[in-house]
Write a protein that binds this DNA or RNA. Structure first.
Lengths: 212, 212
DNA sequence: ATGTTTCCACCTAGGTGAAAACTT
DNA sequence: AAGTTTTCACCTAGGTGGAAACAT
């Protein structure tokens, strides 16, 4: 059972669209990664409260390796199985929300905070802003960070990446957002649910084909 | 003659796409205003330099009545003529750039700063965020403001609108960006130039005429 | 007569999974 | 055989001016 929100140090983070996440979770969520970068679906969206109104915060996320395994999909049992040791994460997997930094007031008043600009890729050579590089056939879980900024940090005027400090941040993880990376969907039920729930994927309503 | 940039208090603002603005200016630029809100074309875009790297700035604009006249377009002479006294500006005409506030570093490193989210409207009843309400058949000139923020203002956490202070800002005005508001284009040459230069207006080239 | 509103075909821009081609 | 890359038809989302209807 998962209540849809987490509270830590007085900061409350709600997972928006938790029902949809749960539907996907029951089937073992797959996320496509491509060279050009692909959005996540469902999109990670949160609501934040309990912040200090006039305090500045960075809000960002990283994608944490769920374990150190590589997976493969076994068709006849319709299951993901461990297929050996995983590869270590090659690049930093941090994505800063575009509105950072902003005051507690701003974060809370804007309602839903969406990470829809984030794209997943398997392209390790050219590092593109807004993309996170992952290994295919591995499991990851998103971790959301809320980090208060000191007055000195605000004044320093350095790049946002330099201000990030995971140790100084409050972190939130929702179990139903674990996913396995793929370059093509393995479980047909996942494909069907994506088509049924993602407005951009309505092009092929009756598509059903078995891999032989 | 207009050099394409202005310097004031050590801050330099360049008008991006000045050549296009000049083409429209020679014909007397018209901007459509609608109830739902319409973008400006050309879009107002600038480059800023000479800012203090670690200082926070707001960048915003307002649309200033060019004079206190109402205009009408005289077809047989293809000219805009004064048609009486103008109406006073009803609402504040300020539009804050979405990246505000940001450090001098940020503003300068992002290259072109575009005001493409701005929309012009004649709807005075429902005030929509990101829209500026104007009178039709009046002349306006955009004025760009660069306003340094004090540490206290940054900490105050109030809304951005409350932080705006035109008297504390450095203002820039480019003569070639004057325009007349209309609800339908008056000068056909303006229409042609808009179609020729705006990618979103390519729908009606003479290609799809009646077949003989 | 003049100016405004509404609707629409035609675009740009970009997010989807399917299928075929490609790699190992 | 298994996984990846490329291309593409089909979508969503939204920015254009034209034309007809509407308002004054």
């Amino acid at each position: 059972y998962s209540p849809g929100f987490l509270v830590k140090n007085g900061i409350k983070v709600e997972l928006e669209g938790q029902d949809l996440w749960k539907k996907f979770h029951r089937l073992s969520t797959e996320m496509i990664i491509t060279k050009a970068g692909r959005r996540m679906f469902p999109t990670l969206k949160i609501r934040v409260s309990g912040l200090a109104a006039t305090q500045s915060y960075m809000i960002f996320l990283d994608l944490v390796p769920f374990d150190d395994k590589r997976y493969r999909y076994v068709y006849h049992s319709s299951q993901w199985m461990v297929a050996g040791a995983g590869d270590p994460q090659p690049c930093p997997s941090t994505f800063v929300h575009g509105d950072s930094p902003a005051s507690g007031n701003m974060w809370e008043s804007q309602g839903v905070i969406s990470f829809d600009k984030l794209k997943l890729t398997n392209n390790r050579s050219s590092i593109v802003q807004g993309q996170i590089c992952l290994h295919s056939m591995h499991k990851y879980i998103p971790r959301i960070h809320v980090q208060p900024l000191s007055a000195d940090q605000i004044k320093s005027g350095s790049t946002m990446e330099a201000l990030l400090d995971i140790d100084q941040s409050v972190s939130f993880t929702f179990p139903e957002t674990v996913f396995t990376t793929v370059t093509a969907y393995q479980n047909q039920q996942i494909t069907k649910l994506k088509i049924a729930s993602n407005p951009f994927a309505k092009g092929f309503r009756e598509a059903t084909r078995t891999r032989d």
